[in-house]
Design a protein around this nucleic acid. Structure first.
Ligand SMILES: [Zn+2]
Length: 245
DNA sequence: CGGCTTTGACCTGCGC
DNA sequence: GCGCAGGTCAAAGCCG
């Protein structure tokens, strides 16, 4: 097991290669999906530490698309983690999506845990961090399928998160006029999936759900590696150490 | 010409 | 068992 931060980073499929530097997240709980806020710091606790997928740390790139996509708009982000316990069949009624529609500027909810807390969980920073810790600790090895979802306020739903996605399906969801799109990571061997749909209660928002963990870095990532004179081995800052093996 | 969308068919779990 | 709802497949078409 890892510490909370590490766990958060490592377990997070949500390894945006390009990610908004100062995006605001709105984390909420829903059903078996637990929410947390990745990390306020751009490359602080969350992403950079993740050994598995995120090559964020050493990555250097320009992120025009991302900027364009998000348009400086306030990014509302729900980040769910699935519990490997499966879905206890959360009644939709119990967790009306409307509940998380609330922007919830600066409420400081207690520790959000149960779906019921959703209403109260207007979610903001530190409390969410606590949640993350809680999740990390409580959710133990979620090595199974991770799920996270977040809601973004955007006009177009093609947010470039740095990965290449191949659409493989489209369905309409019951009780919603908006279709849901299914994407799969186009990288061979990586079976991360993603579903995108508009929030029916708030068409201004786009809900994106990720499932799985990328077993690769995002395409376009550039590493600046140094070569260890002694071993002749390459290593990348923040990614590996020469003495690794 | 290769990779991606499109789109209807197909599959599966679940409730009645 | 049937029908619905959600998820996936895959053939055909689109596009660079
Ligand atoms: Zn991937």
């Amino acid at each position: 097991m890892y510490m909370a931060a590490a766990a958060a980073g490592a377990s997070t499929p949500f390894n945006f290669c390009r990610h908004g530097s100062h995006a605001e997240y709105d984390a909420v709980f829903s059903g078996s999906w637990m929410a947390r806020r990745p990390s306020a710091a751009p490359h602080g606790g969350g992403a950079s530490g993740s050994g598995s997928g995120s090559g964020y740390g050493a990555a250097s790139y320009v992120a025009p698309t991302f900027g364009a996509a998000f348009r400086q708009q306030h990014l509302d982000l729900l980040d769910y983690l699935s519990d490997d316990q499966g879905v206890p069949a959360p009644p939709p009624a119990a967790v009306p999506s409307a509940s998380y529609v609330t922007p919830a500027p600066a409420m400081a909810p207690a520790e959000p845990v149960v779906p019921d807390a959703v209403a109260a969980a207007g979610g903001y920073p530190r409390s969410v961090a606590a949640a993350a810790a809680a999740v990390a600790g409580e959710g133990r090895d979620r090595t199974t399928t991770d799920k996270i979802a977040f809601r973004t306020r955007s006009d177009d739903e093609i947010l470039d998160d740095g990965y290449k996605w191949r659409k493989y399906g489209k369905k309409s969801v019951k009780n919603s006029p908006n279709p849901r799109n299914y994407y799969r990571c186009s990288t061979e061997g990586c079976n991360v999936k993603k579903r995108v749909e508009r929030d029916k209660n708030d068409p201004r928002y786009v809900v994106t759900m990720y499932e799985g963990i990328h077993n690769h870095v995002c395409p376009g990532t550039v590493y600046y590696a140094a070569q260890d004179a002694a071993s002749g081995r390459f290593f990348v800052a923040g990614i590996s150490h020469p003495d690794l093996n």
